[in-house]
Design a protein around this nucleic acid. Structure first.
Length: 313
RNA sequence: GGCCCGGUAGCCAAGCAGUAAGGCAGGAGUCUGCAAAACUCCUAUGCGCGGGUGCAAUUCCCACCCGGGCCU
């Protein structure tokens, strides 16, 4: 088992709740260890969301015939590469990261996966076997018309094991399960699994005291608003409407309330802060149960961990 | 000084004799193709204070304290 691990490519993962300083830490480590950063923030994939999803400012440059986004001297991947109305799913993300990490390692660089979308990170690091059933918009639309109770009843009949694991009120989980069962003809729970590890992973998490975390979030929201978040939201709303999944992004969603005249600007900003705090709390809950994460408070601690990680062989 | 209204969790607030709705904030979680999403659970032996009347009071009565309004 230990022998098999040796042959795995190394992958450094930087994670933590929003506004915790992941980006800065990832850059420090990238510079120190010749790394390239892959974003694991599900909102940074989309073009035109620079302010709202806090995409690091940089520029596209040509390097060895490829176009690369370089910020603070470090190559970044999976930023602004997709139209807002063409969602990047967890499954697609997983495949993209595997490919990118391979290429980066091939250049002799260290792939650094940095972001706060726990599910997407785990899809890679835990090598999730995601049931190969693409979202079916027409089918989903049909399910949306039904009550949670009705969806749950059907799920209970077709996949009792999965039904037992979710609350009856969660239509989204029930819907996806039914969608998979509908397409694959097998219970959802039987199609989920984990494969052998694809990478030799070091997970580093940044943790801050709750009050500090909340202060940083409030400050960042104010900064975003000053930087033109409202214009960005208006532009995206005009172009894509307010109903596509990606417009549930923090910031754009709440400013949409204001732009549609449903609330004041002040209230919308308050809601962004509140909802971002709630989000950060959920991220913390997600990461908390991952025993593999090494929690650090300062970059220097992370450096030590990475140095040791890279010298193991 | 007199009269009136109000004082219920950190905040807003319903209840007004039968043993404390709800919302917000806060906390704890769930999580395999929407995840910055969706969803679950927890949070007042207590209703300004002290008496009284009831089998029973946050709910009725008396006095007091505090806030607001009106009057002089």
């Amino acid at each position: 088992m230990r022998r098999a691990k040796k042959t795995l490519p190394k992958l450094l993962v930087i994670l933590g709740p929003t506004a915790s300083g992941k980006t800065d830490l990832a850059i420090v480590l990238a510079k120190k260890f010749r790394g390239e950063i892959i974003s694991a923030d599900s909102r940074q994939f989309y073009r035109g969301t620079d302010i709202g999803s806090d995409i690091i400012p940089g520029k596209w440059v040509k390097r060895a015939g490829r176009r690369v986004y370089v910020a603070r001297g470090v190559p970044h991947h999976l930023l602004s590469f997709r139209r807002l109305d063409q969602p990047v799913t967890a499954a697609e993300f997983k495949d993209l990261v595997i490919k990118l990490a391979e290429q980066i390692a091939g250049r002799g660089h260290l792939p650094i996966l940095a972001g706060g979308t726990g599910l997407y990170v785990n899809a890679v690091t835990e090598n999730f076997t995601i049931p190969p059933v693409a979202p079916d918009p027409a089918y989903r639309r049909r399910l949306e018309k039904r009550s949670a109770a009705s969806l749950y009843a059907e799920l209970k009949r077709k996949d009792p094991a999965y039904a037992a694991r979710i609350p009856p009120q969660n239509r989204r989980y029930a819907s996806r399960a039914l969608e998979v069962i509908h397409a694959a003809g097998r219970p959802f729970s039987e199609l989920q699994g984990k494969g052998e590890p694809l990478f030799d992973v070091l997970k580093i998490g940044i943790r801050r005291p709750r009050p500090e975390m909340y202060r940083r979030i409030d400050a960042r929201v104010d900064k975003m608003v000053k930087s033109g978040l409202l214009d960005e939201a208006r532009r995206l709303g005009r172009r894509y409407g307010w109903n596509i999944p990606a417009m549930t992004a923090l910031g754009h969603r709440q400013l949409g309330l204001f732009l549609r005249g449903e609330t004041t600007l002040e209230e919308a900003v308050r809601l962004i802060k509140r909802d971002t705090r709630h989000f950060a709390k959920r991220q913390v809950a997600w990461f908390k149960r991952d025993r593999k994460i090494h929690w650090v408070k300062r970059p220097i601690e992370a450096q030590k961990l990475v140095r040791r990680f890279l010298s193991e062989n």
